[in-house]
Amino acid sequence: MAARKSVKKTNVSAEELTEHYRSMLLIRRFEEKAGQLYGMGLIGGFCHLYIGQEAVVVGLEAAAEEGDKRLTSYRDHGHMLACGMDAGGVMAELTGRTGGLSKGKGGSMHMFSKEKNFYGGHGIVGAQVPIGAGLAFADKYNGNGRVSFTYFGDGASNQGQVYETFNMAALWQLPVIFVIENNQYAMGTSQQRSSVTPDIYTRGEAFGIPGEAVDGMSVLAVKEAGDRAVAHCRSGKGPYILEVKTYRYRGHSMSDPAKYRTREEVQKMREERDPIEQVRTLLLDHKYATEDDLKAIDKEIKAVVNEAADYARNSPEPALEELWTDIYA
């Protein structure tokens, strides 16, 4: 697989680029493993994989600073790994075990980390959008200079509460970055069949919220746009919209046969635009890394993921008393 098309000169350091590579590869391998465990019956229920979209969250995490907050929808594994949550803890939550980040009580769609400022993991399409603005409200209230990355999809962008939130976020100048991960399909409904306007980022115009479209298959493009958005929010100018055009390779969830698009469409994207291949090529072309270096990273990531899977399989199921805990603080 080659992605030579979008390769160009970069002034990004070897270290930074390698880190992007490592982070994206971790998400990819983790998700592949999750798919495998799902097939084995170790993961139940809904499981939404992030494969193909890795550059979005990795690029934006690179633009974030310590203390910034983030939250997203149910397609959340990548976001958790990218903000540094433990792969074993995430995987053990997927298997519903006591070592999971929510002690096995949340599942794939409902995970949180106070330590990493990750506020979910939300299973109701669009519900995280006002909540993300609420986190920004708290930050503004406390005057701490933090920003809140609020991720949602092209599907969620048709929910009414998104526009209620745009209005209030602009009215109150909240430091929130609305990241629309446009992977082109809301479950099985393509954007053309669900949205009258092709460019979702323009929907902030009515509220005076600046927005831009970003190549979501390029981690560097995402990082650059993220820097602009963060600078805008942190300087007190209010919300910002990034519509990151991306693509998910897998079905909406594990049980989706993805009949609404052709195999060729997916294949073409994988071959020509793959975010990980793009960075791999850059690393090699700039002689930032050798094939051997990258192989070593691949091996290292594989080990992390295998360890996470082992942990997730061996961690015990939650104690039966856990049914009755954490209902009230």
Binding site: A138, Y141, E164
Partner: peptide, 17 residues
């Protein structure tokens, strides 16, 4: 805008207010 401001309030509570 009850749906929206309730969600914002929930987020503010998550955020420590």
């Amino acid at each position: 805008t009850e749906h929206g401001f309730t969600g914002i309030a929930v987020g503010a509570a998550f955020g420590g207010l």
